[in-house]
Write a protein that binds this DNA or RNA. Structure first.
Lengths: 316, 316
DNA sequence: TGCATCCATAACCTGACGGCATGGATGTCG
DNA sequence: CGACATCCATGCCGTCAGGTTATGGATGCA
């Protein structure tokens, strides 16, 4: 006899989709299960939340009232979970750092080593994220900090320090006609099929397809979709398409059958370290960010005062 | 794989009690069930929330983090539920009014009739509450407005208009030596056993025991505890003790075997209409409050501008 | 030493919940 | 106009989550 957050999540999905069937597949449950959940919620509240019709599920007045409150509830739950987990890591003296494949590349080890000198008691737990998770776990509070390619979706809701900038290069199968060129112009690649990240990654996907450097009448062709560096390299080596990558990938992801060629006509790419605003007061995160900046020899873009404080006490 | 609010409520209870056994009985579940719930929550969060010891359950660091967030989450859930239910009543053109037995007494029907003239389309649903529920459902959003004796617990978190004030009288068994007196002084009743409301009602209970009108060295004696007017009258008629009541009870709750005698030395009592601040903009509630004031011939204490607006449109 | 207090564990049982298959209502299109 | 597509509801069934009772182990206390 308690409205639990599972029901609210289901309700929110149905309210957004306006359609039980689509909401059900979004939530990875069957449509009858969702029907029952919504009925249960309605019964629990003693209120009709949707008017059912052929067209789908439309919110009633009470439904709109609930829909207005639901995001706040779910956000409160998520915040609570995130902060609790974060406190757990702090207590265990663990800093969890997420990173995307091809983010920091060879700098990563140096950063961890530098952090180890600053905070000998704290262990860094590195978590590689799939590209379908473009904040590498920052968004769901799974990690305390993340090494990411900039820009990333939702970037302005986090703190970010830029660490380094490098050119983007083309990654071609060794058998490709352009593979032996010393340089390419991106325009030469407009008609090539590209290996892309999953569509759900939005701007991240678009960024690595360089849609902004492409005329409107030459939409990108997708040769394959991959979520992991190995699949990605395999797809390229097998001739399903080409891709863009940071220059450092040529060193870090060298592999027979794959060639890296410098490209003109696309903007360079940056790596940054990101953390949640909630951790602005967290000295462990602060030390990690400082370690990042030290290793790459960068200065804080926003002045040192914007960083979490230094210090060696345990986190509150 | 979702933290549901049931687990959070359990967690909050354990955190407050510091003791599984007591928390379990507060939640009306068995102790092993709570053990499992806490374990499940810990597993879900990947964090140890309590340190178990002979002395009980003590919060860990992460536990404190969660305990700090839990009230906000539960409050958000409750708000969502309350507003949804309220919207449901508005849609159904129902105004639900809670009242405590002995609150408005004979004025109640007149108020409902007057409201019926103002809003012919809206039905008033009266809900009598037990004394153990001293806001008559206002606190849990079960009702849109409530007719209450003033003061009531948590009164300053609601809007209140005072409707009428009357003396308190003593209620005695007809066989009581003092039953045939025309007037009494409260001091004469200091040593009598009283029929009281349940201890959980706090200041409400104390108010009707008139603890403020009693010297510190004459603590009240409790003859019986009741939660309903009928039990209360029976307890008095059967000689378990006496009680104070509003003067109107002499008319409204006349019964053989029970006598009402005016008392000096206790402050008079007031009846008010209360509503939630969230309904300040609700014209239906506004019309109900105005109906109350009209019927008793009172003016708004805080000026008419503090009342919810008048109007005949449906509620938003 | 016996008792009280607290939490954990074991064994068991019920029903909540999800999945599959299907039905009913209602637009749409050839 | 009938076949079809789209949506939501329903019936049936199997599984497991979550509750209960009974009991055990640890530890102060009288």
């Amino acid at each position: 006899m308690d409205v639990d957050s599972r029901l609210l999540r289901s309700f929110a999905a149905v309210a957004e989709e306006g359609n039980l069937t689509r909401a059900a597949e979004r939530l990875f449950v069957s449509q009858p299960a969702l029907t029952k959940q919504i009925r249960q919620l309605e019964q629990l509240l003693g209120v009709r939340l949707f008017t059912r019709s052929r067209a789908g599920m439309a919110l009633t007045g009470p439904g709109r009232a609930l829909a207005a409150r639901t995001p706040a509830v779910l956000a409160a739950v998520d915040t609570a979970v995130r902060e609790t987990r974060s406190a757990g890591r702090a207590q265990a003296r663990v800093l969890r750092v997420g990173f995307l494949a091809s983010a920091a590349n060879e700098a990563t080890q140096d950063i961890v080593a530098e952090f180890g000198r600053r905070r000998p008691g704290t262990r860094v737990e590195l978590r590689q994220a799939a590209w379908s998770n473009p904040t590498a776990g920052l968004a769901d509070g799974d990690v305390d900090a993340a090494l990411l390619r900039l820009p990333f979706p939702g970037q302005d809701t986090y703190r970010v320090e830029t660490l380094l900038t490098e050119d983007r290069v083309a990654v071609l199968p060794a058998t490709h006609p352009l593979a032996d060129r010393a340089r390419l112009d991106f325009a030469e690649l407009w008609d090539e099929p590209f290996i892309a990240a999953p569509p759900t990654t939005g701007s991240f996907r678009d960024y690595w397809l360089a849609v902004e450097a492409r005329p409107a009448d030459r939409p990108v062709r997708i040769g394959a979709v991959t979520d992991q560096p190995d699949e990605w390299l395999s797809a390229i080596a097998n001739g399903y398409g080409i891709a863009l990558a940071p220059a450092s990938a040529a060193r870090f992801y060298a592999r027979p059958g794959v060639t890296y060629v410098p490209v003109d006509g696309v903007a360079p790419t940056s790596v940054g370290v990101a953390w949640a605003p909630a951790d602005d007061g967290n000295p462990v995160v602060g030390d990690f960010v400082r370690s990042c900046l030290d290793v790459v020899g960068a200065a804080p873009t926003s002045g040192p005062s914007a960083l979490p404080p230094e210090g060696h006490g345990p986190q509150a």
